[in-house]
Amino acid sequence: MILKSGYRFSEKIMVKQQAKAKWRFNPIPFRFNAAQNGVARCAACRFFTGAPAALERAIPGVNILSSTYGSVRADTGLCERHGVFTTARSAACPQFEANRR
Protein backbone atom coordinates (compact mmCIF):
# COMPACT_ATOMS: atom_id res chain seq x y z
CA MET A 1 0.00 0.00 0.00
CA ILE A 2 1.47 3.38 -0.97
CA LEU A 3 0.79 6.06 1.57
CA LYS A 4 -0.44 9.25 -0.01
CA SER A 5 1.22 12.42 1.10
CA GLY A 6 -0.30 15.80 0.43
CA TYR A 7 2.70 16.68 -1.76
CA ARG A 8 2.39 14.14 -4.51
CA PHE A 9 2.11 15.88 -7.85
CA SER A 10 -0.65 13.67 -9.23
CA GLU A 11 -2.69 14.12 -6.09
CA LYS A 12 -2.49 17.90 -6.38
CA ILE A 13 -3.80 17.68 -9.92
CA MET A 14 -6.67 15.50 -8.83
CA VAL A 15 -7.63 17.83 -6.02
CA LYS A 16 -7.85 20.67 -8.53
CA GLN A 17 -9.82 18.56 -10.94
CA GLN A 18 -12.32 17.61 -8.27
CA ALA A 19 -12.77 21.24 -7.31
CA LYS A 20 -13.55 22.12 -10.94
CA ALA A 21 -15.77 19.13 -11.56
CA LYS A 22 -19.48 19.70 -11.75
CA TRP A 23 -22.11 17.17 -10.87
CA ARG A 24 -22.21 14.42 -13.42
CA PHE A 25 -24.32 11.41 -13.98
CA ASN A 26 -22.78 8.33 -12.38
CA PRO A 27 -23.86 5.14 -14.15
CA ILE A 28 -22.71 2.97 -11.25
CA PRO A 29 -25.01 3.41 -8.26
CA PHE A 30 -23.28 3.97 -4.97
CA ARG A 31 -24.83 0.94 -3.39
CA PHE A 32 -22.53 -1.42 -5.29
CA ASN A 33 -19.36 0.55 -4.84
CA ALA A 34 -16.67 -0.95 -2.63
CA ALA A 35 -16.42 2.00 -0.35
CA GLN A 36 -19.02 4.51 0.66
CA ASN A 37 -18.39 7.36 3.03
CA GLY A 38 -15.01 5.90 3.89
CA VAL A 39 -16.42 2.58 5.08
CA ALA A 40 -15.36 -0.73 3.54
CA ARG A 41 -18.21 -2.83 2.20
CA CYS A 42 -18.76 -6.57 2.08
CA ALA A 43 -18.55 -6.41 -1.72
CA ALA A 44 -14.79 -5.96 -1.47
CA CYS A 45 -14.25 -8.78 1.01
CA ARG A 46 -12.73 -12.05 -0.08
CA PHE A 47 -15.21 -14.01 2.03
CA PHE A 48 -18.18 -12.54 0.19
CA THR A 49 -19.84 -14.64 -2.54
CA GLY A 50 -22.06 -12.49 -4.70
CA ALA A 51 -21.68 -13.95 -8.20
CA PRO A 52 -24.91 -15.72 -9.28
CA ALA A 53 -23.28 -18.95 -10.46
CA ALA A 54 -21.16 -19.22 -7.32
CA LEU A 55 -24.22 -18.64 -5.15
CA GLU A 56 -26.17 -21.39 -6.92
CA ARG A 57 -23.28 -23.76 -6.28
CA ALA A 58 -23.12 -22.66 -2.65
CA ILE A 59 -26.84 -23.19 -2.02
CA PRO A 60 -28.01 -26.36 -3.78
CA GLY A 61 -31.71 -26.20 -4.58
CA VAL A 62 -31.96 -22.44 -4.74
CA ASN A 63 -32.45 -22.58 -8.51
CA ILE A 64 -35.41 -25.01 -8.39
CA LEU A 65 -38.08 -22.36 -8.02
CA SER A 66 -35.93 -19.29 -7.97
CA SER A 67 -32.82 -17.79 -9.47
CA THR A 68 -29.77 -15.94 -8.32
CA TYR A 69 -29.81 -14.04 -11.61
CA GLY A 70 -33.10 -12.29 -10.77
CA SER A 71 -33.77 -8.74 -9.64
CA VAL A 72 -35.26 -9.87 -6.35
CA ARG A 73 -31.88 -11.06 -5.09
CA ALA A 74 -30.45 -7.60 -5.80
CA ASP A 75 -26.98 -7.63 -4.20
CA THR A 76 -27.63 -10.37 -1.66
CA GLY A 77 -24.65 -12.62 -1.18
CA LEU A 78 -23.20 -15.15 1.21
CA CYS A 79 -20.53 -14.31 3.78
CA GLU A 80 -18.49 -17.53 3.90
CA ARG A 81 -16.62 -16.25 6.97
CA HIS A 82 -19.73 -16.11 9.16
CA GLY A 83 -22.05 -18.36 7.14
CA VAL A 84 -24.70 -15.65 6.91
CA PHE A 85 -26.45 -13.81 4.12
CA THR A 86 -25.79 -10.15 3.71
CA THR A 87 -25.75 -7.49 1.04
CA ALA A 88 -22.76 -6.34 -0.96
CA ARG A 89 -23.31 -2.82 0.37
CA SER A 90 -23.25 -3.81 4.05
CA ALA A 91 -20.50 -2.25 6.12
CA ALA A 92 -17.68 -4.75 6.52
CA CYS A 93 -17.08 -6.48 9.83
CA PRO A 94 -13.76 -6.56 11.76
CA GLN A 95 -12.85 -9.81 9.97
CA PHE A 96 -12.85 -8.04 6.59
CA GLU A 97 -10.11 -9.15 4.22
CA ALA A 98 -9.71 -7.41 0.91
CA ASN A 99 -10.47 -9.43 -2.15
CA ARG A 100 -7.27 -9.66 -4.19
CA ARG A 101 -8.66 -11.58 -7.14
Binding site: M1, N33, A88, C93
Partner: peptide, 29 residues
Amino acid sequence: MTNVGSLDASREAAKPERRGWKELYLKED
Protein backbone atom coordinates in the same frame (compact mmCIF):
# COMPACT_ATOMS: atom_id res chain seq x y z
CA MET B 1 -3.77 -8.64 5.33
CA THR B 2 -6.50 -7.97 7.81
CA ASN B 3 -8.01 -4.55 7.96
CA VAL B 4 -10.68 -3.28 10.26
CA GLY B 5 -13.05 -1.91 7.71
CA SER B 6 -10.58 0.59 6.36
CA LEU B 7 -11.11 2.56 3.21
CA ASP B 8 -7.59 1.85 1.99
CA ALA B 9 -8.24 -1.84 2.07
CA SER B 10 -11.19 -1.37 -0.20
CA ARG B 11 -9.23 0.83 -2.53
CA GLU B 12 -6.54 -1.76 -2.82
CA ALA B 13 -9.00 -4.54 -3.31
CA ALA B 14 -9.81 -5.84 -6.72
CA LYS B 15 -12.91 -4.29 -8.21
CA PRO B 16 -16.02 -5.67 -6.53
CA GLU B 17 -19.18 -6.65 -8.27
CA ARG B 18 -20.44 -3.45 -9.86
CA ARG B 19 -23.92 -3.19 -11.17
CA GLY B 20 -26.30 -0.30 -11.73
CA TRP B 21 -27.26 0.23 -15.34
CA LYS B 22 -25.50 -3.06 -16.03
CA GLU B 23 -28.50 -4.71 -14.42
CA LEU B 24 -30.27 -4.02 -17.68
CA TYR B 25 -28.24 -6.79 -19.28
CA LEU B 26 -27.01 -8.77 -16.27
CA LYS B 27 -30.35 -9.60 -14.63
CA GLU B 28 -32.71 -12.10 -16.17
CA ASP B 29 -35.73 -9.97 -15.24
